[in-house]
Nucleic acid binder design. Sequence first.
DNA 1: CACGATATATAGAGTATCGACATGTTAGGA
DNA 2: TCCTAACATGTCGATACTCTATATATCGTG
Lengths: 124, 124
Amino acid sequence: MDRPSFDSQSLGRRLNELLVLSLLRRAPMHGYQVAVEVEERSDGFFTFNHGTLYPILHRLETEGLIAGEWSDPAEGRARKAYALTEAGRTYRAEGLREWTMLVGRLSPFLDDEAANDKVSDGAA
Amino acid sequence: MDRPSFDSQSLGRRLNELLVLSLLRRAPMHGYQVAVEVEERSDGFFTFNHGTLYPILHRLETEGLIAGEWSDPAEGRARKAYALTEAGRTYRAEGLREWTMLVGRLSPFLDDEAANDKVSDGAA
DNA sequence: CACGATATATAGAGTATCGACATGTTAGGA
DNA sequence: TCCTAACATGTCGATACTCTATATATCGTG
């Protein structure tokens, strides 16, 4: 039983991937569009620098989690639309579970008033 | 306008700090004890490698968020007990708010079924 | 007296984001 | 037509953090 432990080093990367995969889940998008959508839909809370986003997309594509396809050259400006693959869907679901677990596990550490009440593993 | 935005790069660091500060909030502890408590109280989900924990403690002390005090040499094994300072308490509260905000902001991106319901004026 | 657990500390390696730079296209106004 | 801004993708060096391994020293027990 590999009890899922927490890796603080890759947390940022995982979260960024989760953001991208979740956006692509609704509909295929190209890179620039992903950046704009994330920023707009979060009121500027989440942002993607180009130097961050494109390497992420390349990585996800290399790993087979998303599939990129260049637009028809006849259709004007060249764009690469990314679609979520089956593996990507699975990966996203797994990442979502892990995120939820992290939030849940962290909670008792953060609000220790509640923890005091609940987890009195011994009279202090 | 300092709308708090999200910094994925320092997320791991912030979370580790939040864990440490939250533990120290209950009572002063020395480094080794922090590592043991975190691991025990989370059933092994969170762990602190020594090479990770001690630099964190040094950093927090340098920034005045915790105050370390060496044990009385007469009391046997040398230990450095860290206590949360006033600044540390403030910093922890702020970090907690930011964490809560992150979780809240991320939520609509992750479960977009719910978002679908909410964004479109669906007659639920 | 040797050994493992306790306790703190540092150095080197690896990895990922960030900011800057680079390239080319499309649409609109002067 | 020319020029500018927005669109669209891409790469590279600097930076910053954790992780693994190593080092030192004390305490209790057999």
